[in-house]
C-alpha cells in the first residue's frame, strides 16, 4: 500500500499516524488485503442485503416520548447555557 493511500485513509478516519505507524499499518494492511484477494474468486452474486436475516418493515409509531431525563444527559456532556461546547469551526 502506497504511503499516499494510507495517509489519505488516516486523514479520512481522523487519525494522526507517526512515520513508524504509517509504515507498520501500511504493511499490515498489505498483508491483510493480499490474503483477502481470494474474494475476487467468489461469484459476483445477484443480490445483497445488509443483514443476515430478513428485517422488513419494522416501524415505530409517531408518538413523542422521552424516557430518560435530558437533564441527566446534559450533565454528562458538560453544557454551557444549555449548549454542548465544541471546537473551532474554521
Amino acid at each position: 500500500m502506497e504511503r499516499e493511500t494510507i495517509a489519505r485513509v488516516a486523514k479520512v478516519a481522523r487519525l494522526n499516524l507517526t512515520e513508524e505507524e504509517m509504515e507498520r499499518y501500511a504493511n499490515d494492511l498489505d498483508d491483510i488485503l493480499n490474503s483477502f484477494s481470494v474474494l475476487d474468486e467468489a461469484p459476483a452474486g445477484e443480490s445483497y442485503s445488509f443483514n443476515p436475516i430478513p428485517v422488513i418493515d419494522v416501524l415505530r409509531e409517531d408518538e413523542p416520548a422521552q424516557d430518560i431525563d435530558p437533564q441527566a444527559l446534559k450533565a454528562q456532556m458538560g453544557t454551557y447555557e444549555g449548549y454542548v461546547r465544541g471546537p473551532r469551526l474554521s
Binding site: A13, R14, L15, N16, L17, R85, G86, P87, R88, L89, S90
Partner: peptide
C-alpha cells in the same frame, strides 16, 4: 481544547 480546529480536535482525541 476548544481553541483547536474541529478536525485537529477530533483527530487528537481519536489518536
Amino acid at each position: 481544547k476548544f481553541d483547536q480546529h474541529f478536525n485537529d480536535f477530533f483527530t487528537g482525541v481519536r489518536s
